[in-house]
Design a protein around this nucleic acid. Sequence first.
DNA 1: TATGATGTATCGGTCAACGATATATGGATT
DNA 2: AATCCATATATCGTTGACCGATACATCATA
Lengths: 101, 101
Amino acid sequence: MQDPTFLILLALSDRPRHGYGILLEAKELSGGTIRIGPGTLYGALERLEDAGHVELDREEIEDGRPRRYYRLTRRGRGVLVEETQRRENLVGLAKRRLAHR
Amino acid sequence: MQDPTFLILLALSDRPRHGYGILLEAKELSGGTIRIGPGTLYGALERLEDAGHVELDREEIEDGRPRRYYRLTRRGRGVLVEETQRRENLVGLAKRRLAHR
DNA sequence: TATGATGTATCGGTCAACGATATATGGATT
DNA sequence: AATCCATATATCGTTGACCGATACATCATA
């Protein structure tokens, strides 16, 4: 799993969000350094949905425009936790290796 | 930067290694969980060489077979340190977010 | 009036990663 | 003697995530 997908799952970890809300939250989360474009987002959402990691929470219509809210599934949360652990292990490895020269 | 490239730089961080040695070290480093294939390695090495992150250290001939040793450049080390920092930040973010629910 | 924020969506290109395969040698096993 | 495994480098074609650009629509603001 690459960074954008990881960020998307992370943005959904506290509550359901719609697409644009995910983009904003990912930007907010990273302090503005990481920006995900719509081309990345919607492709990733489709893949995550197929994998059963996220699902459609609800669909609202506001001012004639649809807002599709996605939520993390139980399985998606598990995947996110595992991925975080995996990344933590790798970073720990790197830090130890870079420390003692 | 994705995991395989990160692992390759990390494998070269203590001393120069030849291609096959990098594969073994990456496997060792990760406790056997991450395996890099030759198709990934040599493509990545070429890219890293073009970017000036690794360079050819020396070339030995043993039993008629060449062994090409690569070393991390100063710039490559800097990139590795930065990448480690970047990954650490992201993991820290994720852990904090997953902790307080 | 026109710019920017909000909001969803598609399209095509790029490029790292990856599996499979090829070549070659030496040592261990059958 | 033949076969397998480890060593060692390298190429090729495919996949797929990512990404920029673009499109469309509405509303508020300048």
